[in-house]
């Protein structure tokens, strides 16, 4: 099996445990897992669950960085654990904790219903004056038009950006990076005319103006969505709108 002689045989993981039926606060528990060059943190967690402690709870599914289930804090940084290689954290111990700023449900599982409410509020669907009948074919959209919003459509809802955003930590009402990026994804789509409808929530009290441009959301995003960029761009739009409505009150419908 390859050349593994020199590598450490095991690696230590310090993992958050929280069992609400038994304890009122989370604790850290350490486990040993075998070290393998091609293992990711998630493989080690699965090893623990399968062989050592069946009661450790965490979410995962695709193991290829696309379903967005497996986000956790690894050594203090939000990561997809299926894309965080053990080899990058040697010699250990590796600290694995639930995503920061979210309520902990159990062990490494956090509650994200809050995001789902926010997502629905920004109307992440194509808004049109009227639907064109299918018989008339597709809406034309050139590759250049596609390119304008493509980046913001790549969000896998993994919540790493929220876990990196201190503003979200301090102001849980903040709509937050991914939801704003997704709103912007539709605003910039040539098939959509819903920007006006999204304006109230986006530039309202919990919207873009909460953001003071920490920029961490973009740094941790595993899919290069650049939510910070989305927010900044939207601030320009929002500001333009505000000026228009103040200076030309009759100019607004």
């Amino acid at each position: 099996m390859g050349s593994r002689e020199k590598l450490p045989p095991t690696v230590t993981l310090a993992v958050t445990r929280y069992r609400p039926e038994e304890e009122s606060e989370p604790t850290l528990q350490t486990y040993e897992a075998p070290y393998r060059k091609d293992w990711v943190v998630l493989d080690a967690l699965n090893y623990i669950k399968d062989k050592v402690d069946g009661s450790l709870s965490f979410r995962w599914s695709c193991r290829m960085g696309v379903c967005g289930s497996c986000g956790m804090m690894v050594n203090g940084e939000p990561k997809l654990t299926c894309a965080a290689f053990l080899s990058d954290y040697l010699p250990g111990p590796i600290r694995v904790e639930p995503l920061q700023f979210f309520p902990i449900v159990r062990d490494l599982v956090v509650d994200m219903t809050d995001f789902l409410h926010k997502l629905k509020k920004v109307k992440p669907w194509v808004v049109r004056e009227e639907e064109r009948p299918l018989s008339e074919g597709e809406y034309r959209q050139t590759p250049e038009q596609l390119d304008i919003y493509k980046q913001f459509s790549m969000c896998i809802n993994c919540m790493l950006c929220y876990a990196a955003c201190p503003i979200y930590g301090l102001e849980p009402g903040f709509v937050g990076p991914a939801a704003i990026a997704l709103a912007q994804r539709y605003n910039l789509d040539s098939r959509d005319i819903g920007a006006q409808e999204r304006l109230d929530i986006l530039s309202g009290k919990d919207g873009i103006w909460e953001c003071t441009f920490v920029g961490e959301c973009t740094k941790v995003c595993p899919k290069n969505v650049d939510p910070a960029g989305a927010i900044q761009q939207y601030k320009l739009t929002g500001a333009a709108h505000w000026f228009k409505s103040v200076l030309l009150p009759w100019g607004r419908k």
């Binding site: 669907w125 639907e131 597709e138 959209q141 590759p143 596609l146 459509s153 098939r191």
Partner: peptide, 20 residues
């Protein structure tokens, strides 16, 4: 028709230069 429906719902299908 199903694929077009998905296009109408916003799916970012890859396009030809003329937008089809």
């Amino acid at each position: 028709a199903e694929m077009l429906q998905l296009e109408h719902w916003g799916c970012p299908w890859s396009r030809q230069p003329d937008g089809r």
